[in-house]
Amino acid sequence: MTSKLTDESNPWLVHSSQEIYANAWIRVREDKVTTPANTPGIYSVVEFQNLAVGIVPIDQHGNTWLVGQWRYPLESYSWEIIEGGCPKGEKPEDCALRELKEEAGLVADKLQPFMELSLSNSSTDDTAVVYVATGLTEGEAEPEETEQLQLTKMPLSQVYELVLAGKIHDAISVAAILKLKALGYF
């Protein structure tokens, strides 16, 4: 059975947009709109000032590296693939290579994009691009001064089990590991 995609045009009408708050990381705006139901409304949007970048380094034995850190907004500890924010004007590939070095001390011979994500499309424009890094050379990590990171190396199959058990819950990490499994990387 095949499904047909229907009309994908924008049913929202924006009458005005006002910045409510802005800093180096986010901008919050409020739009006065006419909704798809043809009623007046307000839509608030959080715009992220950086593109999220994720990297799954994979060595010749099928191992990868996870970074553990306290996530302030969630008030919990999180194990994740290597991630960072790509400022406007920086190439995502350059950011990925920089984050790989900073967080894990790794240098990659090959960096391949394999996924793009919308992270919370109901209230933010937060998007991510994820890379697979191979041909790795190990060195010393150089985390930013505001980061307190733990680093661990383990087989992708074990990371997959952690995702299934809910021990890894970061959206970018979960999506990346599930897609790698579906693509037959392990």
Rank of each mutant, 00 (worst) to 15 (best):
S3D: 10
K4I: 12
E8N: 13
N10H: 12
P11W: 11
W12N: 14
L13Q: 13
L13K: 12
L13F: 00
L13E: 13
V14L: 00
S16I: 01
S17E: 14
S17W: 15
Q18E: 07
E19V: 07
Y21L: 11
A22C: 13
A24M: 07
A24L: 14
W25A: 11
W25R: 05
I26G: 01
R27L: 01
V28W: 05
E30T: 01
D31L: 13
K32E: 15
V33L: 13
T35G: 05
A37Y: 15
T39M: 02
T39L: 09
G41M: 07
S44C: 14
Q49M: 04
N50W: 03
N50F: 03
V53I: 10
V53F: 04
P57I: 15
I58H: 08
D59W: 09
Q60Y: 02
Q60V: 15
G62Y: 00
G62I: 07
N63S: 08
N63P: 00
N63V: 07
T64Y: 08
T64N: 03
W65L: 04
W65Y: 04
L66A: 09
L66N: 02
G68K: 10
Q69T: 03
S78D: 12
E80C: 14
I81M: 12
I82G: 00
G84L: 03
C86P: 01
P87M: 06
K88E: 10
K88I: 09
E90L: 06
K91N: 12
P92C: 11
E93F: 06
C95Q: 06
A96Q: 06
L97V: 03
R98Q: 04
L100C: 01
L100F: 05
E102R: 05
A104R: 06
G105I: 06
G105Q: 01
V107L: 07
V107I: 11
L111K: 13
F114Y: 04
S118P: 13
L119Q: 07
S120T: 11
N121V: 04
S122T: 01
S123N: 14
T124H: 06
D125H: 10
D125F: 11
T127C: 10
A128Q: 01
A128Y: 00
V129W: 00
V132T: 15
G135R: 01
L136V: 02
T137L: 11
E138F: 02
G139D: 04
E140Y: 00
A141L: 04
E142S: 14
P143N: 02
E144R: 15
T146A: 15
T146M: 11
T146D: 08
E147H: 10
E147K: 07
Q150C: 14
T152G: 05
K153L: 10
Q158A: 13
Y160G: 09
E161I: 13
L162M: 15
L162P: 00
V163F: 06
V163P: 03
A165G: 04
A165C: 01
I168Y: 09
H169S: 10
H169K: 10
H169T: 10
A171W: 06
S173P: 12
I177W: 03
L178A: 12
L178P: 07
K179G: 03
K179N: 09
K181V: 11
Y185F: 05
F186A: 05
